[in-house]
Design a protein around this nucleic acid. Structure first.
Ligand SMILES: [Mn+2]
Ligand SMILES: [Mn+2]
Ligand SMILES: [Mn+2]
Ligand SMILES: [Mn+2]
Lengths: 219, 219
DNA sequence: ACAAATGATAAGGCATGCCTTATCATTTGT
DNA sequence: ACAAATGATAAGGCATGCCTTATCATTTGT
């Protein structure tokens, strides 16, 4: 495969990130929701991935990456996270904007440049959202805060960047990996939390993208 | 003007770099030579620049940037040189590859990010090729080595990145801004030089892109 | 089991930025 | 002044990645 286009790469990245852990095909509806494109555009692009040997498509089921597709996606996501580290650690760019910008930079520099950058940054283990750089597939540590219990305190391990809303909330509330978050109360889809000595009312949907470990009983 | 495309930006940058100092229009032939596109593609794109108010076109004469076009080009070139500094100073990327990569990165990050990068780098005055970052239009110091005299020694001030051949030569011979270069002999289009204690035979055409100051009579 | 929801696919369209072929206009050198 | 070189422009094409409308197939829930 020679020089996948920016779009092709972004599709591979999205499929990789959204894919099921159980090896089940990813429904095109998930991709549609992710990109906001029409179902037909999604279908067209998936067919292109198939033609190029990057994915397998099972009608009425969904799409699966081939080994080549998976490898290409992994390289993309690695570059993405390295750029995020650069933007966040060196230039103090907020994590929501870092994610967006890395979405462009990941296509602009080849692997060897980002590897140099990785070394230059001191081989960081995690991107600013808390995702591992060396073990791309590792699941976030702990549980989704949406499933947390009232009265308990969680140390945030990861803020999944899939939801731009959550990223913006994290930025505004100053929530970062390592922050302590306490669930005050849960009621009908909303969760009241305390973070950095401030109380916030957030929706369960948005908090689903925050992951943390229960630290209530001491470290 | 909203969101100029990568192509539009590159055309603006090329026109800005190639433009005459005397305010004369730039012949489309020069753009054609620069990009290697067909005359008709060049013409089409120039018409787009005109439609968007970025340039003025005088048939049979050439193209001139408007104020908007010029400002956009200046911002692009500034971003370009800042990225080159980053790649060269922080990641030790050779100057020929740095130029190429910066040609992509310049489109991937907005001004505010590159300004942060600029500060992070310590507000460098020159890109790795010796072009000024704050005074984009300043002409290279000294003379073109192609016009130098046999027996004289020049301190390289700038290697114009327009010619990829020259950049590669500079890389291979280890010529950088600040290097001392002595002209041994000139004969029929070729120039024999001494650089870093090594003698090289180079063409006048390639050496035209090297600029330097005569340092023979002491500093 | 069947209707409703969901998914697949065919046909045609559009903007972008490149191309070739062909024709016509202007400038240039002698 | 005129031929040759150069430049402008019209017409039509192509790949990419998006779109809408319309039809047909499968899956799903009851
Ligand atoms: Mn991307
Ligand atoms: Mn991240
Ligand atoms: Mn460029
Ligand atoms: Mn430069």
């Amino acid at each position: 495969m020679i020089n996948p286009s920016v779009s092709i790469e972004d599709y591979l990245g999205a499929i990789y990130r959204l894919q099921r852990k159980d090896g089940q095909p990813l429904p095109l509806g998930d991709l549609q929701e992710h990109f906001g494109f029409s179902p037909i555009s999604i279908h067209e692009m998936v067919q292109k991935l198939v033609q190029r040997g990057l994915a397998v498509y099972i009608p009425y089921k969904g799409v699966l990456l081939t080994l080549t597709g998976s490898t290409t996606a992994e390289a993309l996501i690695r570059r993405h996270r390295i750029w995020e580290c650069f933007l966040s650690n060196e230039l103090a760019v907020p994590i929501d904007e870092a994610h967006q910008l890395a979405g462009d930079l990941e296509h602009a520099a080849p692997d060897w440049i980002t590897e140099r950058l990785f070394n230059h940054l001191g081989q960081p283990s995690f991107c600013p959202h808390g995702s591992a750089i060396d073990e791309l597939t590792s699941t976030p540590v702990g549980i989704s805060i949406a499933n947390g219990q009232a009265g308990r305190t969680y140390v945030i391990s990861c803020i999944s960047p899939e939801n731009s809303n959550s990223l913006q909330i994290a930025r505004e509330a100053g929530i970062l990996p390592g922050s302590s978050l306490t669930i005050i109360e849960k009621k009908n889809g909303n969760i009241e939390i305390e973070i950095n000595d401030q109380k916030k009312q957030l929706s369960e949907d948005d908090l689903a993208y925050f992951w943390g470990m229960d630290m209530t009983d001491g470290s």
